[in-house]
């Protein structure tokens, strides 16, 4: 592991997740170790039930791991209080969900403004920013439409704009184009790459879409709660310049994941 002035953006350290289902313990994640660097774009693929979404939720602090640590900038967020976690999510993370999860009572513009309003920003400044962002994703003409009046692709764009509005350090996307047609999906994917290139936003995208996964610089495959493979397609300007590697080095070599 190369020493760096700054710790990696995210370090997932031996995360286990177990659910109690009808009295039986179900193991969802069995020791995940992953390091995500700033500006990376990685896709997480794997069959249904592999634990991709659970990993994303735990990474997004919406759920707590049964064991293990999540380090953001070297800080263990699993020890945060709920209030601090909420603030952390607001300041550091952006979510894009398959179902988009826009607030139905609010217009597209208000939906994009929402994270800023939760933070307590001035509405006028937020509105300007949200409008600019919506124009950027090609929705400048849909500002006052409610989610119900938008098409699936448009909703996905609004959700993306909402995830980006506060310039988070990490955007977590759970099958963002899962129920969109291929043409719309491609334009959204292009948007991801464009934003990564221009803003340096880090993306973690859980997807079933092989085309998308293959086009991403890094592809993490999961199976049965473990990481099956971790491939880097292209080199990038991060600390790891040695090209694609089969296994990400673990933080604690004495505890290699099974």
């Amino acid at each position: 592991m190369t020493a760096s002035a700054k710790p990696p953006l995210v370090v997932i350290d031996g995360v286990h997740k177990r659910f109690l289902h009808e009295g039986r313990s179900v193991q969802i994640l069995e020791g995940i170790d992953l390091v995500i660097e700033r500006g990376e774009m990685l896709s997480v693929v794997g069959p249904s039930g592999a634990g991709k979404s659970t990993l994303l939720h735990i990474l997004g602090t919406l759920d707590l791991p049964t064991a293990g640590r999540i380090l953001y900038d070297g800080q263990d967020v699993t020890r945060y209080s709920p209030g601090r976690l909420a603030t952390f999510r607001n300041y550091s993370l952006g979510f894009v969900f398959q179902a988009h999860h826009l607030l139905p009572e609010f217009t597209a513009l208000e939906n994009v403004m929402m994270p800023g309003m939760i933070r307590g920003g001035a509405r006028a400044a937020l509105a300007r920013r949200a409008e600019a962002l919506l124009t950027e994703v090609g929705l400048g003409h849909r500002l006052t439409h409610r989610p119900g009046e938008l098409s699936g692709g448009e909703q996905a764009r609004v959700a993306l704009a909402r995830a980006l509005v506060l310039e988070p350090m990490l955007v977590l996307a759970d099958e963002p184009t899962g129920n969109l047609d291929s043409k719309t999906s491609e334009s959204i994917h292009a948007l991801f790459f464009d934003l990564n290139r221009r803003r340096g936003t880090t993306f973690l995208i859980v997807t079933h879409n092989n085309e998308l996964a293959d086009s991403m610089p890094r592809k993490v495959s999961m199976r049965d709660g473990r990481i099956e493979s971790d491939l880097r397609r292209f080199s990038y300007s991060g600390p790891f310049r040695d090209g694609p590697s089969e296994r990400e080095p673990t933080l604690d070599p004495t505890d290699p994941p099974g």
């Binding site: 997004g60 909420a86 009572e105």
Partner: peptide
């Protein structure tokens, strides 16, 4: 429920 979940994912605190 859904709206509350979305708001919380975006960082709304319990107090809010």
């Amino acid at each position: 429920r859904r709206e509350v979940g979305i708001l919380k994912a975006m960082g709304t605190t319990g107090e809010q």
